[in-house]
């Protein structure tokens, strides 16, 4: 068996060496939004793999064998950071045996380092639920953050793949121009949302609220990652009577039960937001993500 294994190992090794090195670099993105961004900035020079899809809870992913295999042959890992992927990414990176993508290496990039995080907890205690010490990690829902991350990502791609730096720079410039134009469009369209009071199912939207000026009255989850109970929801219904919200926001990957319960009794709509690229049929890229998000919010306001 041992000899057979070694022989098989050697055969595989030779087969791998025989393959010509591909021109493109492999990018391992932990979540769909960074996969989409890597495609925008990297263009044809990158092969992008997204470790999760939009209907998966990014907090609860397993270190699946397929992820380890993809990480093994990647040159760059694009993660959100702020401990969003703490339950699985460290294991994938350690098991992959790929020195280039370990934290601290140029091949490991965290979007959270490029932006200012909101909701940084003043108290770290597991009794407070699934808190992230660095701040709220759902930073992709502020399009201004996307621009900052794009900037940093282009620089990082140029570091990992110096031969393509001109391409990344040009792609970034093109993306940034288009993005800034879209930003004006979204902000003008969403002007009526400013100050609109909302409930959120999970504390997933501080960046969106910050950008559009939504007024979050509170979260249905009593603590991050803890399902709301009936007393919690009844309390929120009471508060809704005193300070009425216009809608309930819920990311596409969460369970509908709690928000539907409240919506039915409070007679306000639940807005299922795509949350990331692929979270709805329209959100097929980053532009679509915000087009659809703004459209759904406006539709709920009417």
């Amino acid at each position: 068996m041992l000899i057979k294994t070694i022989l098989r190992l050697a055969a595989l090794f030779l087969a791998v060496l025989a393959f010509p090195a591909a021109a493109a670099i492999n990018v391992f993105a932990t979540v769909p939004e960074w996969a989409a961004l890597a495609r925008e900035v990297g263009g044809d020079r990158v092969n992008v793999f997204s470790a999760t899809n939009a209907l998966q809870d990014p907090h609860r992913i397993e270190a699946r064998p397929s992820l380890i295999a993809r990480a093994r042959s990647s040159q760059l890992v694009v993660a959100t950071g702020a401990e969003l992927e703490i339950g699985w990414l460290p294991m994938v990176l350690r098991e992959a045996g790929n020195a280039a993508i370990q934290p601290g290496q140029p091949g490991y990039f965290e979007a959270a380092t490029a932006v200012r995080l909101l909701e940084v907890p003043v108290r770290l205690d597991r009794a407070d639920g699934d808190v992230h010490p660095g701040g709220n990690p759902h930073l992709q829902l502020d399009p201004r953050n996307i621009l900052k991350v794009a900037d940093a990502l282009a620089a990082r791609l140029a570091l990992v793949d110096p031969a393509g730096s001109a391409v990344y720079k040009a792609n970034l410039a093109r993306f940034a121009d288009k993005w800034k134009a879209a930003l004006v469009r979204w902000e003008q369209a969403a002007a009526s949302l400013r100050g609109a009071p909302v409930w959120v199912q999970h504390r997933a939207f501080p960046y969106l609220s910050d950008w559009l000026g939504l007024k979050e009255l509170g979260a249905l989850e009593p603590k991050p990652g803890v399902e709301p109970g009936s007393t919690q929801l009844a309390g929120i219904l009471e508060r809704q009577k005193a300070t009425p919200a216009r809608m309930i926001l819920r990311p596409a990957y969460t369970r509908p039960t709690a928000s539907d319960w409240l919506a039915e009794r409070a007679h306000i709509p639940v807005v299922v937001l795509p949350f990331t690229v692929g979270g709805s049929a329209e959100a097929n890229d980053l532009f679509g993500l915000f087009d659809d998000t703004v459209r759904r919010l406006l539709a709920a306001l009417k």
Partner: peptide
């Protein structure tokens, strides 16, 4: 000693 193959199918060999 472990080795992970650079393939999309996860293959790990160890001794």
């Amino acid at each position: 000693l472990r080795w992970v193959a650079p393939t999309d199918l996860f293959m790990e060999f160890g001794a």
